[in-house]
Design a protein around this nucleic acid. Sequence first.
DNA 1: TATTGTTATACTCTATAACTATA
DNA 2: TATAGTTATAGAGTATAACAATA
Lengths: 153, 153
Amino acid sequence: MTKPDRTTALIDPLAGQLGYELRRAAAAMMTAFGGELEPLGLRPSEASMLVLIGSNPGRTQSDLGRALRIKPANMVPIINRLVMSGAVRREPGEGRSLAIFLTDDGKAIYRQVRKKLLRHERRFSRRLSRDARRRLIDALRSICSEACRGLDF
Amino acid sequence: MTKPDRTTALIDPLAGQLGYELRRAAAAMMTAFGGELEPLGLRPSEASMLVLIGSNPGRTQSDLGRALRIKPANMVPIINRLVMSGAVRREPGEGRSLAIFLTDDGKAIYRQVRKKLLRHERRFSRRLSRDARRRLIDALRSICSEACRGLDF
DNA sequence: TATTGTTATACTCTATAACTATA
DNA sequence: TATAGTTATAGAGTATAACAATA
């Protein structure tokens, strides 16, 4: 039996690592966003989709899914829940495709979500200068496109 | 029946949003990291824990969990799997606590994971200048600490 | 009693495979 | 046959509640 050290601070070899810090920051923002959405009864994925639909009424489910990199199989429950909540309606389109629209209720929720999103973004951008924010977004995009090199998306 | 528009590019109202771009970049890096770990039979959470243990041998399970913000209930299966794979062993410590160590096999895997982590970080930092990387990490930390304001961690 | 660990369970997002329906 | 949508299912991370064991 060895006595475990419980006084010395732990060494965190992950601190300062890009992937690690990125993951933690993203998780933190996501958790906060989820909390803000709770009163609306929406999950982050549903709220994102609602906003996308509001900006692109009448587009097909598969187009919407592609835009947010959500697989068709995972689009189904997202749209289903939005339909069941009365925010969205499906209309038959060409072929098997379904055109997605916001209902009047959905438009009201859409405006609420946009407002929450704005506040959320502002809260987390507050400490960043305009320039710093710009650079941060650029860096994030470059990371994203690096990951996508050689992949299908 | 309304004909869905399938020619015009979609408007992405989430593009340029901090939370959205952050989430995508983090998911991209995480997916890439998961792929690199596959040959080792480790999940990202297990690999992270292995690296933490290697840098802090003999610390308790709860200390390790706190360091990576992993809840005690979620630590159990992570350590279990590392033990079952032969990389880690538990030793009884003070009270109910368990001191965690790498086995000799675990030390070999640890070195492999560190190497993979280094390559991974380098790959995604390549396009960033030393300064840009520093600023990025700082921004990520400021986002993290903003989220943690008013919370327990 | 306070801390540590464990079990069970549920939620959210993601992924694949196999299927149906339509042009 | 190619595209769109659906179903079922599994994996990964995270969360809570309830419980056991130890000092």
